[in-house]
Simulated scan of single mutants.
Amino acid sequence: MQPEQLKSFLEANTTFSFGNATTPYTANDFWGWAFSNMNVAVLRGVLIEYLVAKSLIAKCDHIVGDTVRALTTNTPQEGDLTRSIEKHYQVQPHGDVFDLQLTWGVTLEIKSTASPQNWRLNKTCRWNIMEDKNLWEQVFPAQFYILAHIDSDISFNENDLDLGSVTFHVRTGRELDALTGTNKSVGFSRFVGDETNRPGYRFDELPDVLKKLQAERLESVQKHILPGWKMAPVPGTENYNMLPLAIEGEDGTDTFWCREVKLDKGVWRCIPIDPIPSPWKAGFVPDWRDWEAAGFSYVPRVMTPVESLFRRLLPELDGVFSASEIAEVSSFVEVGEYGLALDTTIGIFIEEKKRAESNVIALVQSLATAMKLPDAEYSELLCAVSRK
Score class of each variant (00 low, 15 high):
Gly339Asp: 11
Thr345Gln: 08
Leu340Gln: 13
Gly339Asn: 12
Ser330Val: 01
Ile350Pro: 15
Leu340Phe: 12
Glu352Phe: 06
Thr345Trp: 02
Ile350Lys: 15
Ala341Thr: 01
Ser330Cys: 06
Glu337Gly: 03
Gly336Ile: 04
Val329Cys: 13
Phe332Gly: 02
Lys354Pro: 03
Val335Met: 12
Ala341Asn: 03
Gly336Tyr: 09
Glu337Ser: 12
Glu328Ser: 14
Asp343Arg: 15
Gly347Ser: 00
Ser331Pro: 03
Tyr338Thr: 03
Glu328His: 12
Ile348Pro: 15
Val329Ser: 09
Glu357Ala: 04
Lys353Tyr: 01
Ile346Glu: 12
Gly339His: 13
Ser331Lys: 03
Gly339Leu: 14
Phe349Cys: 10
Phe349Arg: 13
Phe332Ile: 04
Glu351Gly: 00
Val335Phe: 10
Val333Gly: 07
Glu334Lys: 15
Ala341Asp: 03
Ile350Val: 15
Ala341Gly: 04
Ile350Glu: 15
Asp343Pro: 06
Ala341Pro: 00
Ile346Thr: 11
Glu351Ser: 06
Gly347Ala: 00
Thr344Cys: 06
Ala341Phe: 01
Val335Ser: 14
Val329Phe: 05
Val333Thr: 04
Ile346Met: 08
Ile346Asp: 08
Asp343Ile: 09
Leu342Tyr: 03
Glu337Gln: 09
Gly336Glu: 06
Val333Asp: 10
Ser331Cys: 02
Asp343Cys: 06
Tyr338Lys: 08
Gly336Thr: 04
Gly339Ala: 09
Thr345Cys: 15
Tyr338Phe: 15
Ser331His: 05
Ile350His: 15
Glu357Ile: 02
Ser331Met: 04
Lys354Val: 01
Glu352Gln: 14
Gly339Lys: 14
Arg355Ala: 12
Leu340Arg: 15
Phe332Val: 02
Arg355Phe: 10
Lys354Gln: 02
Gly347Cys: 00
Ala356Asp: 04
Leu340Lys: 15
Glu334Val: 15
Ser330Glu: 14
